[in-house]
Design a protein around this nucleic acid. Structure first.
Lengths: 337, 337
DNA sequence: CCGGCTCCTGCTCATCTGAGCAGTGGCGCA
DNA sequence: TGCGCCACTGCTCAGATGAGCAGGAGCCGG
């Protein structure tokens, strides 16, 4: 082992080398001449500087992604794909970034789905807006859960699906039904109506699903739309509900929180969603961490688009005690290390 | 020219390429395969990303330097050398970093000076402390201006010189005299004394000078030591004094603020300092910007060791209107651009 | 419609850089 | 003292990268 003193000297050398290499664009050979070491040593110094984190390489761009987190997420939860964007401090900005990233992802999906099943909500509406006109050609869209006819902001549910379809030069098929019915019989009746049943049937054949999730609290669109009251939400929380996926409230265990309520909820079932080849979850923000975890740990999505805080939360809390994943040491520290 | 849309697409591509290159350590060829472009395009994308600042490479280390600022300073003020360190927010920390950097520099100076002239003060004391034992061999040290016999912290002036010499296995020669005498006759008398005169004579022969500068305000060591009163300082400021160099108060024009006072000040003259082959100024912190500017713009030092804020202040305010130096575009943006 | 202009593209070639390897020297332990 | 271990060094070689260039596409003014 080298003495402590020369180890410190080595670190200083590494710093000088890094400065000359990254700030002055000198070649390793030139640096070697300046620092009076061989170019191989300079190479090792630089590798060391990158490993030890003396050099920090950051990509500052709204559309940047966190590839290492993506890989970890994918591996941990057996996802087909994961998109993680840097999280801005402002929650509104954060939502926008996640939505943009989802739009980018949708554009790049291969093979292009002939039929895309979509849910609705604030998040998905932003995704629809972020999609460029002509993002694909001939993609048809079908709603996978009931719309918000009673909404304070009418037409949101419909406009999301329509906008996505329009921008891809395709047809949108809407689900002309409330999300949750008051009586089970009504739900069964409406479901058996050919217009409604046919749409649900069509939704079952979609090549991919695009959906988000809501939190089980008063901010929910279901409360906004009058499908559920504050008391209903409280009861759901009592039963362990963490949030809703395509209108169905689930617990942290990934199970239906209230089977009776669920029976009155119209649209694709959780099992159908789970069985899908491609289901893309778009979710971001602190409040949604619990739902996100429930979805992701119970196979309800095959692709996740989220922010880095959510990603880290998913990875941290679900941590195997046996396997410590890089909190201190970077997973992909080096530059050609 | 390419359309706006594809320019944006290009930027996105650059971001993806940067992520893959810097975070995933992929080769440009592999990235080309992923993004479906040629490897040459990937190379250009990366160059573009670096130029446009999409990629930020930062060296996080206490001993890091700002080489681009160093070059600019050197060029602008015709310096032999300039050392610029990143400025921590804490002023105390900042002083420590500048002192360390000065020590590092001193260690690396070639040829090693046989005789080093030093002034004294808080900054220089820190430099002395930061020097490693054995930083050189056989370097003798001589004081270049009067010491602080009246100091509240006695021995500081002496101990600086002694410590520097000891750590290099050399002899220290002290200047056994007050910095400023009350009467001109006393100054002349003491100056003609062989012990004192001989030391000044020896100081004139030093191969290099190491000095700092003080601010013309109540925090000055001269006030602390009782050489000057608050009124004296006020009078000096009235005459345009910005601070002192080796005990001599100068104006922003680089001239002596008060010739009468200066005549009573014992030690190397400003002209002798200016004529020196190697004079190393160690200076840092907001309050010292004006003195630093006076020194540097009037050739009173050949080497400066400072913090990046001071460096930038020197470059900004002294700006030629004809020549706009990179405030927006980085001087050395690229990595092998 | 044409020539001139600029910018972009993909190429060749020279250079730069990292992986891997054998030689060396310090250091602890017998 | 002698032995083996280990880290470090400088090398060869192949793969990765950047500089510079010719060809081509889009654009404008005549």
């Amino acid at each position: 082992m080298v003495s402590t003193e020369s180890a410190a000297a080595n670190e200083l050398l590494a710093v000088r080398a890094a400065e000359l290499y990254y700030e002055e664009n000198k070649t390793q050979d030139e640096i070697g001449a300046i620092l009076r070491v061989t170019r191989w040593k300079v190479g090792r110094l630089l590798a060391q500087a990158r490993e030890r984190g003396i050099i920090r390489i950051e990509i500052v761009h709204p559309r940047a992604r966190r590839l290492s987190l993506e890989r970890e997420l994918g591996a941990r939860f057996g996802l087909q794909d994961a998109i993680v964007v840097p999280a801005p401090a402002d929650p509104i900005e954060l939502q926008a970034r996640v939505a943009e990233a989802a739009a980018d992802y949708l554009v790049s999906v291969r093979p292009v789905p002939r039929l895309l099943g979509v849910s609705w909500g604030r998040t998905l509406h932003q995704v629809a807006e972020a999609l460029p006109v002509g993002w694909a050609t001939g993609v048809n869209v079908v709603q996978i859960n009931g719309g918000v006819s009673l909404s304070k902001r009418p037409g949101t549910a419909a406009s999301t699906a329509v906008m996505i379809a329009q921008k891809a030069g395709g047809q949108a098929t809407l689900l002309p039904s409330p999300a949750i019915l008051e009586r089970l019989e009504t739900k069964k009746a409406i479901e058996s109506d050919r217009t409604v049943g046919g749409v649900v049937q069509m939704a079952r054949g979609a090549a991919a699903y695009l959906f988000s999730a809501g939190v089980a609290d008063l901010s929910s669109v279901h409360v906004d739309s009058g499908y559920l009251t504050g008391d209903d939400i409280a009861a759901l929380v009592e039963r362990g509900a963490v949030g809703d996926v395509i209108g169905r409230y689930i617990t942290a265990d990934g199970t239906i929180a209230d089977p009776e309520l669920d029976a009155r909820t119209l649209g694709l079932s959780l099992e159908e969603l789970r069985a899908a080849r491609s289901s893309i979850l778009v979710i971001g923000g602190e409040s949604k961490h619990p739902v996100a975890r429930a979805i992701v740990t119970h196979g309800l999505c095959s692709v996740i688009v989220t922010d880095e805080h959510t990603a880290r939360a998913l990875l941290d809390e679900g941590d195997d005690p046996t396997e410590t994943i890089s909190t201190t040491s970077p997973t992909s520290g080096g530059h050609h290390s």
